[in-house]
């Protein structure tokens, strides 16, 4: 088993407040890793430190390491922009840019300097197919992305992330704003995508974590309490706090 991402004693501070405490996590290649825990437990912070999205928050301080394919993401010579090209991200609220469907997909490749229209069109088709959206939008690529339904928008955001050919896709509660049917579509999609990508998903929905993920990590107050194969965590959690959380006896 090879690890795509490994964190070593990762501490993250927001000003005075410590959001992550000595987190050691190994994310397996081509698997889906779910991170769950109550609000404010640090799971989203962890997700966002994997592609250095936390850099943009004022007063954030990171200690420890995040190894992506063996290289420290936070090493001084590493550019956050380059990391984000290797580690794509899908957010809680679908956030298509106020541009056409095509321009949304082409945005990533374009900022990387691709100009060839045919090549961009090829990428758009490939990404949209991979995100199971092609058949629904192929005749209206010039339509504004904001005219799509919520579920379609989220799949567009996934397609957009795929267009920059990342190795890892981070998903921050990708279905929390969607209806159950769209949620299932995205969950199905994740199962297909994991064959080619490594996926890390933050979710509030325990059933979702149980349904889609191969490994599950439980966070509480900035600490990784338990990390194991999903079936283990949900049938015989080793830590009482995990048990209390997943059985709904939390607090």
């Amino acid at each position: 088993m090879s690890f795509e991402i490994t964190t070593k004693d990762l501490d993250v501070f927001y000003g005075e407040k410590q959001a992550l405490k000595k987190v050691n996590l190994c994310v397996n290649e081509h698997q889906i890793t779910a991170l769950m825990g109550p609000s404010g437990c640090g799971k989203s912070t962890l997700l966002r430190s994997l592609n250095r999205m936390n850099d943009n928050i004022a007063g954030v301080r990171v200690e420890g390491q995040v190894l992506l394919g063996g290289r420290d993401v936070y090493a001084p010579e590493v550019d956050a922009v380059e990391i984000r090209q290797r580690v794509g991200m899908v957010f809680q609220q679908p956030n298509p840019l106020p541009k056409s469907i095509f321009e949304n997909i082409a945005f990533g490749p374009k900022v990387l300097g691709m100009k060839n229209k045919t090549a961009l069109e090829e990428i758009a088709e490939k990404s949209l197919r991979a995100a199971a959206l092609w058949d629904e939008v192929k005749d209206e690529l010039k339509k504004s992305a904001l005219a799509l339904s919520g579920g379609q928008q989220q799949r567009l955001c996934i397609a957009r992330a795929l267009a920059i050919q990342p190795e890892v896709i981070l998903m921050d509660e990708p279905c929390s704003a969607l209806d159950p049917f769209s949620t299932l579509k995205i969950e199905e999609l994740m199962q297909v995508l994991k064959k080619r990508y490594t996926i890390v998903i933050v979710t509030h929905n325990m059933q979702q974590a149980a349904r889609v993920s191969d490994w599950t990590g439980f966070f509480l107050m900035g600490k990784l309490i338990e990390y194991d194969e999903t079936a283990e965590v949900f049938s015989r959690p080793k830590d009482k706090r995990t048990e209390n959380y997943i059985t709904g006896r939390f607090g």
Binding site: N51, N95, A161
Partner: peptide, 25 residues
């Protein structure tokens, strides 16, 4: 919206690219 900036940054755009291509329009 911050979500649009994040969308752009997460796609590997630099801050300046984000400003010119997303925020300004």
């Amino acid at each position: 919206p911050a979500a649009q900036r994040e969308a752009s940054l997460a796609l590997g755009a630099t801050k300046w690219q984000t400003i010119t291509r997303v925020v300004f329009p």
